[in-house]
């Protein structure tokens, strides 16, 4: 599954980092980074992250 974050609407709530720490994280500069191609074992976490994002910035496909 592919993971994309629309950085034009992401407001850095960081909820995705909490819900799916293996997929989303902050880099040293505090920016959001994520794994763009995830395997089946990470899908549930990524979906939870997408639901937890108050800006609906995470697109899974």
């Amino acid at each position: 599954m592919k993971v994309h974050v629309d950085m034009s609407i992401c407001l850095l709530h960081g909820q995705c980092v909490i819900a799916a720490p293996e997929v989303f994280s902050f880099d040293d500069a505090g920016g959001l980074v994520w794994v763009t191609e995830i395997d089946d074992s990470q899908v549930a976490d990524a979906e939870a992250a997408s639901d937890a994002c108050p800006e609906q910035a995470i697109i899974l496909g």
Binding site: L12, G14, F26
Partner: peptide, 10 residues
């Protein structure tokens, strides 16, 4: 506060 900072306290 930057989210990465709050994350440590969380």
């Amino acid at each position: 506060a930057p989210p990465a900072l709050i994350a440590r306290y969380r």
